[in-house]
């Protein structure tokens, strides 16, 4: 019981208190300094804006969520497959390695204008941008997990009469899954942001479009509504990836399986 109460205090009570305190200070400061709403609206005004836009917002959220999820899946699959190819065919790996490193030096959002130029104004360029953002961390961590497979385990397989193929299937591939999922967890935090940046440039729907329109109307309260929606969506995705990670690695001791940050995020999502 005590442990449960302690957990509730730490995970629910304390965070909620600090958020409420921040909102109160914000509200009080805006009123005391009499700030104009187009500079910084009070939280109460932001809440009103959220209610006002409640009928258009879901469509924008749905668009951005679809882009983020599709991109996440596409990038994860592509990253894992290429990692497998590189490890299975070391020569391909040697040839691709510098290219991959080179492309890593370009932040993917920088490519957004190019993708829009090539793939039009619809969903596709945004999905591609998210996929590119996800691809690299997944590829890099899956590759290194397979390469740096525990030599003790490789030796065990060989010591029982296994060949390189057995080592691959029994030791390296499970390592690829754990590596890919770890990369996915890193990537998940960027996905919604990448989709929104692409939407800033072009598009008819999405949180990026919503924020851009609000900016043109000087509706700072609506911009903040959009920002909060982006934050919540990101938390949702990170939480979902955390669940996937747990499902993909059921063998891990619980405490060590999710780092503190994502555990908090998942526990705060209703």
């Amino acid at each position: 019981m005590d442990a449960l109460a302690y957990g509730v205090t730490r995970r629910v009570l304390l965070p909620v208190t600090s958020v409420l305190a921040l909102l109160l200070v914000w509200e009080a400061a805006v009123r005391a300094l009499d700030l104009a709403p187009f500079v910084l609206p009070a939280p109460s005004r932001v809440a009103q804006a959220a209610v006002r836009t409640a009928d258009v917002l879901p469509a924008h959220v749905a668009t951005t969520l679809a882009e983020a999820v599709l991109g996440l899946l596409l990038g994860a699959v592509a990253g894992t497959l290429l990692a497998l190819g590189v490890v299975l065919r070391p020569r391909v790996g040697d040839a691709l390695e510098p290219l991959v490193l080179l492309t890593q030096t370009v932040p993917t959002v920088v490519l957004a204008p190019l993708l829009i130029l090539w793939a039009g104004f619809g969903l596709l360029p945004k999905v591609l941008l998210v996929a590119l953002t996800v691809f690299f961390p997944v590829f890099v961590s899956a590759t290194s997990a397979m390469r740096s497979a525990d030599t003790d385990l490789l030796d065990v397989v060989a010591g029982l009469g296994g060949h390189a193929r057995d080592q691959l299937v029994i030791v390296r591939l499970p390592g690829a899954v754990t590596g890919a999922v770890a990369g996915l967890r890193v990537a998940a935090t960027y996905t919604v942001g990448a989709a929104v940046v692409a939407e800033y440039l072009a598009g008819q729907s999405g949180l990026g479009v919503f924020i851009q329109r609000s900016r043109k109307a000087y509706a700072v309260d609506q911009i903040l509504v959009g920002v909060i929606a982006v934050a919540l969506l990101t938390a949702l995705l990170v939480g979902a990836v955390g669940l996937i990670e747990r499902a993909a690695t059921p063998w891990r001791p619980r405490a060590a399986s999710t780092p503190a940050s994502s555990r908090h995020l998942t526990s705060e999502i209703p």
């Binding site: 030796d155 296994g162 029994i170 891990r252």
Partner: peptide, 24 residues
């Protein structure tokens, strides 16, 4: 060969670890 460290595969249950040699 049995290594100095046990070399069990952490992602396999005891049963599946035990059958590893037979499978190989």
């Amino acid at each position: 060969w049995m290594p100095q460290r046990d070399g069990l595969l952490p992602w396999r249950r005891a049963w599946s670890n035990a059958l590893l040699g037979a499978r190989i």
